[in-house]
Amino acid sequence: MNSIEIKNLTKRYKTFTLDNINLSIPKGYIMGFIGENGAGKTTTIKTMLNITKRDAGQVSIFGQDIDKDEISIKSKIGYVSGNMFYPKKTLKEVTKYYKSFYDEWDEGLYLDYLNKFNLDSSKRIDELSKGMQLKYLITLALSHHAELLILDEPTSGLDPVARDNLLELFQTIIENEETTIFFSTHITSDLEKCADYVTFIKDGRIIESCSKDDLIDKYRLVNGTEKELLEVKERLIAFKTNSFGFNGLIKTIDLKETDSFKVGQPSLDDIMIYNTLHKGGIL
């Protein structure tokens, strides 16, 4: 079953269009949502959750239509955006307010998580580090038995250790096969470690949406001499030249048996960087 299924989602602004977005996430997996700043990640998340009104398309979550069952769907979602609400309040106060919205609130589970994450509920939100704030928000989501966590740029502003901790926590959360995680980031190395699926958005359009392993298989990094560049230039997605020759990205299906240049496996970073350049463009 798919936790999220989005079809032809469109949202038009004066200067930006989220254009015909299609994506789906199977239950129990982690999908990373990558793209440059301004590519449409937050707009996609807000539009699919009806936080901003869409112009076209269908969104179904847990197999239910968001227009028909918005409240029931949202009671099973934990949404974490970059903004911390009520920074001057204590965790205790925020929790009291937050839990009043959820029938499924599980106080025992909440206390377990506070304990597990060493969260002191008498502290004020702004006294916590960014990493601890996130753990608190995730605690809130898990305590009302959210089956889907949607996080907008959760790792930005975290130091490498806190980031690694968070990604490990994601994998622990999905271990039960019940919870699905969808998170946006512009740091592709976050995904190398834990994502099962990757969706790549550029200028309001989905460039790729598939399993991470398939995505990496789809592309090859190539490098060779200037002469070899002439042979392959037309087939490259983009390339850079330097005094030794060239580096570029190609779709695996566009490789020929006769190609003599070196071919290697790209990182997600390579895929994102070269795809962001225009075809045949030079950095």
Binding site: G28, E168, K212
Partner: peptide, 19 residues
């Protein structure tokens, strides 16, 4: 170990371990 536990411990995706 289960697929998901192995994925978590080796820090790779569930799909990779499944494969």
């Amino acid at each position: 170990p289960s697929i998901r536990t192995a994925a978590k411990e080796l820090r790779v995706s569930v799909i990779t371990i499944k494969k």
